[in-house]
Design a protein around this nucleic acid. Structure first.
Lengths: 196, 196
DNA sequence: AGGGGCATGTAAATGGTTACATGATTAT
DNA sequence: ATAATCATGTAACCATTTACATGCCCCT
């Protein structure tokens, strides 16, 4: 339910055509809320039908420029101040951790190491982006910098956590009697019948 | 593409009916990969058609118990060792941060405060779950504890970050709710595979 | 003349949510 | 009896991805 509001928000800053909006999405929200061309054009149509956007200008080669309406602004602010109805986050990485007993101990270690390397890589990349900024750049891109800092802290946390998990695996090696390459051991024998 | 693998993984531990699987999902992976009843029954059907699962027993009231096949195990391990094809993570919360220039400074502060409170609340909840565990519980739910620790660290990070953002907003109050707004460039470029 | 960027759309498939619908068995 | 739990499924809808499809304008 949020591509809608991303589009609303970016157009609220400045009117845009579908094509421009796509570019803005890729540049600005790429790491936070990816969007494809198909999706954006569809959404623009729907937002116009529901009068949250309006076509403010028609230009060359059928270019339609959209602007936000009063109703659109109201909806945007409503959504921004109502953070409770967000979609539940999903993490394939953590799902794998929960299923780690289906791998051999060696494979589990490999996976955790891969997680750590990936977090370290991301952290380095963010640091590089941060350090390649001059003072006025930072002025310009204030909000994006807040998100960058989030990314940095998240990556750091993931690195530390992965290290810690590696240690835990070493101290808790009671899984994996594997036969013919097939993992058999279970760390969580089903229900503890204790926790929610 | 991961509900499929979650189901495979949980059934790999022990055969289950659709109903049992739903319960396991809620208990075990609820915070990491939510699944609904509809979805699970559909997925079980598809996994059986593609021979990754097999009906191992038919019981009372049409109960069908599913077990994993060799092909299923192979697919599960393949997926677990191939973390690169994960869906891109989306964060409505961070999207709101990027659009924070559409709110007044006061509203922006309110939003950040709400984020902080929500993180603090989550952190407290996780601490409580952790502390309500005895030694053998922890033995039983080793993998779930790894994820719990992740949740704790994430919540802590979010609290600290939100505090820091609050300070930044105070030191950088040149935005306001009005039209036009400041130019917001991109700091973070393309994905690179972000946050679980 | 051709390539690249601007500009728009549609179609098919997958994944996920909500709601509806039904019936058997067990415990109180 | 009746409520809770066990057990299954369908239908409609929304979001997302991938691929296909078209055409104008500008520059070299």
């Amino acid at each position: 339910v949020s591509l809608k509001h991303g589009a609303l928000g970016l157009i609220a800053r400045r009117p845009a055509s579908g094509y421009e909006l796509l570019k803005r999405f890729q540049r600005l929200t790429g790491s936070v809320w990816p969007a494809t061309q198909s999706q954006l054009y569809g959404e623009l149509g729907r937002l116009t039908e529901t009068r949250l956007l309006a076509v403010s200008e028609v230009g060359a080669r059928g270019r339609r420029e959209y602007s936000i309406t009063e109703a659109g602004r109201a909806e945007l602010v409503r959504w921004m101040m109502a953070p409770q109805d967000d979609p539940a986050p999903r993490s394939a990485r953590l799902l794998r951790v929960i299923l780690l007993d289906q791998l051999s101990l060696g494979q589990a270690h490999d996976y955790i190491e891969a997680l750590q390397r990936s977090a370290a890589h991301e952290h380095a990349r963010y640091e590089q982006i941060r350090d390649s900024h001059t003072a006025q750049d930072t002025e310009d891109e204030f909000l994006a910098c807040l998100v960058l800092e989030y990314g940095l802290r998240l990556a750091k946390m993931q690195m530390d956590w992965a290290t810690w998990v590696g240690e835990q695996l070493d101290e808790h090696p009671d899984e994996s009697s594997t036969v013919g390459g097939m993992p058999m051991g279970s760390v969580i024998g089903e229900p503890g019948r204790g926790a929610p």
